[in-house]
Design a protein around this nucleic acid. Structure first.
Lengths: 194, 194
DNA sequence: CGGTCTCTTGACGGAGTTCAAAGCTAGTGG
DNA sequence: CCACTAGCTTTGAACTCCGTCAAGAGACCG
């Protein structure tokens, strides 16, 4: 199913596009609906698609050889999600993306998006800005991992992503912070007594 | 001082540019020389410049309130360096960049680079590719921090950046890995006995 | 209301830190 | 050419945060 013009305008809300362009761009996206526990991308998939979240919640995680899951990213309303390393490099996915809450997504292939870049260079700049933001947030996270103890990282997470916290389980947050559920539980207890 | 055409070709070695373009592009760069312990960017600076490393070695680090340094990035031969979060967002630097080994750099301002993007769109794609690579490597590092113990992270670092290891002190590597120099020393000892 | 998923709690262990001191190494000047 | 110093690395002992394992308490859903 194709997205509506209003949805395309929402996706590119910082860019002003003529109606004909919106129409054309929309024709390159497909709208899909997924339910809880669906898996969007699995490790080893070839990744040629990225997704825009209209509603719902998903997470990207790495499944380590020892069976532990490490959450790289959550995505809700108005976020983009994919295994970007695989998407950019044309390599195979090392991440898994699963649905946490039933969601509606817009998907587009790299081939189609690259074509749109040529037709509307403003889109290339739009995605570069997104990439710059993501880069900055990754950098912030690396510094937090290096410089802050678990409690501080938890507080920073809650402060930075108050919207996401409502959608995900504590053990997801723990796997994002790099601690166990037990440790997170103790941290929450300690914070409650303050 | 301006870079030579050969140096500009080296910078954009994956792009083929006509001689006139090389000339013009070169006029937007300046070549600078720095010695050990020089500081290129200090926390709180307004960052409007990025740097290409011709020779030498630098590091970007965050100086935490408790006085500890956390290394985000090293840069040698053929790397770009800046406080990119500040550079992209037009905000103030939170990082410090210091010279580890005397170096020769090419610098260019964001304003000039943006103008070059318009004149040579191929440059925009060139830098987007660089950004995608950096993004992927940050992601890899986040996963390593979440999933691997210090010894494994050290081995991964040595494997991924064998060239950098020759230029930097062990305490720099420790601050990159997120451990103390003492811990790194013990890890190295353990690895030597194998 | 029974079962499964999630969160909590406790006891113990281990990886890495802290603090203190000693050993190296490389550069510098007499 | 040696001696000295400053910077870097190593080593040891005590400690701390967090992980592991095991069990129990809630919470949610059919």
């Amino acid at each position: 199913m194709q997205p509506s013009p209003a949805e395309i305008k929402q996706v590119f809300n910082t860019v002003s596009l003529p109606a004909t362009a919106v129409e054309h761009i929309g024709s390159k996206f497909a709208k899909i609906e997924l339910v809880k526990d669906d898996v969007l991308i699995t490790a080893n998939d070839i990744v040629t698609t990225q997704y825009y979240v209209l509603t719902g919640c998903l997470r990207t995680f790495y499944l380590a050889p020892n069976g532990k899951e490490h959450t790289l990213q959550f995505a809700i309303n108005d976020w983009w999600i994919s295994d970007y390393t695989a998407y950019f490099e044309g390599s195979r996915a090392i991440m898994t993306i699963e649905v946490i809450e039933a969601c509606t997504l817009l998907k587009i292939t790299k081939a189609n998006l690259d074509r749109l870049y040529e037709e509307f260079p403003v889109l290339e700049a739009f995605f570069r800005k997104k990439l710059e933001k993501a880069f900055a947030s990754f950098q912030k996270r690396i510094l937090a991992n290096l410089a802050l103890p678990a409690k501080e990282r938890y507080l920073q997470f809650m402060h930075t992503y108050p919207n996401i916290e409502q959608h995900v389980k504590n053990y997801h947050i723990a796997s994002y912070l790099g601690i166990t559920t037990e440790s997170l539980s103790r941290i929450r207890k300690e914070l409650a007594n303050t």
